[in-house]
């Protein structure tokens, strides 16, 4: 006996947000006709692509991490906000810099899961609440999404959204 056909609720597919290009260091968005890999505005960052809903705005603090959660880039604004220098922090784990905000009752696994989900979801945006490692009383909403090439995750710290 064949099962009775039923209707199921399915999640709405992400609407493909337009891709924008941005510098991982200064956040500068080059003109579409420019195809430089290195940012011509600051000379110190690489130009990456991400969905417009994820890409950091100019001078918005952001980090780029790979799928092993290793820090690959830190923007100029994030350097100032978190008190680190990019050459010193690159290659270290994200958990050394940002941890889930305990007040929100989330664990490190939730943050890791969010990053991995962001890496896998084309165009999707994940969010989490984090604080700088070793500091309390400061919280940021971080939005995460895929960027590249090569494929990685950009984390943008939206302090104005907490």
């Amino acid at each position: 006996m064949s099962p009775r056909p039923v209707l199921r609720v399915v999640p709405t597919p992400h609407e493909a947000a337009p891709e924008v290009r941005f510098c991982g260091y200064c956040g500068h968005r080059p003109a579409p006709e420019e195809d430089h890999r290195i940012c011509t505005s600051c000379d110190l960052g690489m130009v990456l692509s991400a969905a417009a809903t994820v890409a950091p705005r100019h001078d918005q603090p952001s980090l780029i991490v790979d799928q092993a959660l290793g820090i690959c880039a830190v923007s100029r604004a994030a350097e100032a906000l978190l008190g680190v220098d990019e050459p010193d922090i690159v290659g270290r784990s994200l958990a050394e810099l940002l941890v889930p905000a305990q007040a929100e009752g989330v664990s490190l696994d939730t943050l890791v899961g969010g990053v991995l989900a962001a890496a896998g979801a084309a165009g999707g945006v994940e969010r989490a609440v984090v604080r700088p490692a070793g500091e309390w009383g400061i919280r940021y909403v971080v939005r995460m999404g895929a960027c590249g090439p090569p494929r990685a995750v950009v984390l943008v710290l939206d302090d104005d959204e907490v």
């Binding site: 991982g24 110190l44 690489m46 990456l48 690959c72 880039a73 690159v90």
Partner: peptide, 13 residues
């Protein structure tokens, strides 16, 4: 390294 890098720092490393 720049071909595979996500930042100048990581490429330099």
């Amino acid at each position: 390294a720049l071909k595979e890098g996500l930042s100048i720092s990581s490429a330099v490393s």
